[in-house]
Simulated scan of single mutants.
Amino acid sequence: MAADTLPDWLAVQAEKRPAQVAIRHKKLGIWHEQPWHAVHNKVLLAARFLKQQGFGSGDTLFLLSEPRPEALLLSLAAHWLGGIAAPLDPAYAQPQLLDLLHTLRPQFVFAEAQAQVDQVFDAKPDVSVLIYANARGLADYTHPAIHAYTNIISVGEAVHGTLAAVAKPESLAFRFYRLGDAYQLEYRELSHAELLKNGRQLVVHELLTDKEEALAARAFAASGHARYLLSPWLLAGFKLNFPENLSTRDTDRRELGPTLVAGTAATYQRLYTLVQSRWPLPASWQFTLVKWALHQYQKRVPLLAAIANWLVILPLKDVLGLRHARVPLLVGEPLSAEAEQFFKSIGIQVRDWPEEADWQASPLQVIPRPPSHTEHYFGLKNLRAAI
C-alpha cells in the first residue's frame, strides 16, 4: 500500500474483493447493490470530474444531504485529490443553516435535492460547483455551476493508473462545523491517520469482518460516524446499507437486521420511544406477560429465559430491527439511564465509543445572511430577489 489513507483502503478492498457487495441503497422499495469494484470506479470518475473543475489538495467539498451513497463516494473522491469533506448537518433549522453556509462561503458543494440546491443558492449564489443527486424539480435550473451526479459517474470506466491518490496519512479527511451556544462557528477535524486508528480499534475490539451488515441511518455529519462506521467499512470490507430516506430507516433496519449499528443517543432514544408507544396497557394480561418475560430473561434460568426470549424478547428486538445486532454502538452523548436500562433488559449491551476530539472555536465570525442578499437562480426563466 502506497499510504495509509481512506482512498488507499478503498483501492485495497476493490482489489481484494471486487465482486463482493460494498454498498446497498434502497430506492423506490428496491435494494440496489454496488460491488467494491464499481464503488472504486465511481470514486475515481468523481475525482476526475472534481479535478477538472479545479478542485485540488486542501480544498473543501461541502455536503448537504441525508445519508445516501453519493455523499459518501463524493467524500472519498475529495479525499482522493487530497481534499477535505465537510458534511453539514441537514437537521439544522433553515435560518441557522443558511447563516452557516453564508459564513463558510463554499465553492464546491454536494446538495442532495432541490431543497438543498435552493439553500445553497440562497446563501452562496456564486458557488463554483454544485452537484446534486435527486433531479426532481431541477429540470429548469440552468446555472453553469449545477451538475448531476449521474452524469459525472456515467462517462465509462475510469483509468485507474492515470489518477494517483494525493492524500497522505496526516492529511485532513473531514472537517465538521456547527453553531455553538453563543452562535459562534465551531469545528472538529479528523485526519486519515486518526480515522484509521479509531477504525482499527473498533475492528479489533469487536472482531469485525467482511460479513457484517451495517446501516448508515444518519448522515456522516457527526465525527463519530466517520470514525466508527466509514473507517471500519473500508478496513474490514463489510456491506454498508443506506435507507431509502429518514422516514423509512426504522422499517429498513427491521428488514435488514444489521449486525453493526452505529447510533447517537437520539437514535436509541427514538427506538426506546417507539417501543414505549406500543407498550401494553398496565392492567392488561399482555403487560403482565411482558413484565414476566423481562424478569425471567434477566434471571437467566435456562428454560424460563428461553420461553421469555421466544415469546417477548425476540419480537421486541424485531420491532427495533436489532435481532441480529452484534455490535450496537453509541456515538457521542450518553444514553438516558431509563433507555440504557431498557436495552440491557432485552440483551442489547450498547457500547459507548466517544467522539474524543473537542469542538474548537473558529476564527471566522458568523455572518447572518441579510434578507436582501438572497437571490435564487432558477435558470433563465426564473430569477427573483428576496426582500
Rank of each mutant, 00 (worst) to 15 (best):
D4C: 02
V12D: 09
A14C: 13
A14M: 10
R17P: 00
V21G: 00
A22P: 07
I23R: 01
H25W: 15
H25K: 06
K26P: 00
K26L: 07
K26H: 04
L28M: 09
L28E: 15
L28Q: 14
G29R: 03
G29V: 01
W31T: 07
E33W: 11
F49Y: 14
Q52E: 15
Q52S: 15
Q53A: 13
F55N: 01
T60F: 04
L61W: 03
L63N: 05
S65Q: 08
R68H: 14
E70T: 10
A71L: 08
L74G: 04
L76I: 03
A77F: 08
W80I: 00
W80A: 00
G82T: 07
G83T: 04
A85K: 04
A86I: 02
A86E: 01
P87E: 03
P90N: 06
A91T: 12
Y92E: 00
Q94Y: 06
Q94K: 09
P95T: 10
D99M: 02
L100I: 05
L101H: 08
Q107H: 14
V109H: 05
A111C: 06
E112S: 08
Q116E: 15
Q116H: 14
Q119V: 02
K124L: 13
P125K: 02
V129R: 07
L130D: 02
A133M: 01
R136S: 14
G137I: 03
L138W: 02
L138M: 01
A139V: 12
D140Q: 14
Y141H: 13
N151M: 07
V159T: 15
H160G: 01
K168S: 13
E170H: 13
L172V: 05
R175Y: 10
F176I: 10
L179H: 05
K197W: 00
Q201E: 06
L207I: 02
L208F: 04
A216F: 00
A217M: 14
R218P: 01
L234H: 05
L234D: 07
L235V: 08
L240A: 05
E244V: 07
E244R: 10
N245G: 13
T248I: 06
D252F: 04
D252Y: 04
E255W: 07
E255G: 11
G257T: 11
A265T: 13
Y268T: 08
R270C: 12
Y272S: 02
Y272Q: 01
L274G: 12
Q276I: 03
S277T: 11
P280W: 04
L281T: 09
P282T: 06
F287T: 10
W292A: 11
L304M: 12
A306P: 00
A308G: 08
N309F: 05
V319H: 10
V319Q: 15
L322G: 05
L322D: 06
A325W: 05
R326Y: 07
R326L: 09
V327H: 03
V327T: 15
P328M: 10
L329F: 06
G332P: 02
G332I: 05
P334C: 08
L335C: 08
S336M: 12
A337I: 13
A337R: 12
G347E: 07
I348K: 06
D352F: 09
D352H: 14
W353A: 12
E355H: 09
E355C: 09
D358R: 12
Q360H: 13
Q360N: 10
P371W: 01
P371D: 12
L380D: 11
R384G: 08
A385T: 10
I387C: 09
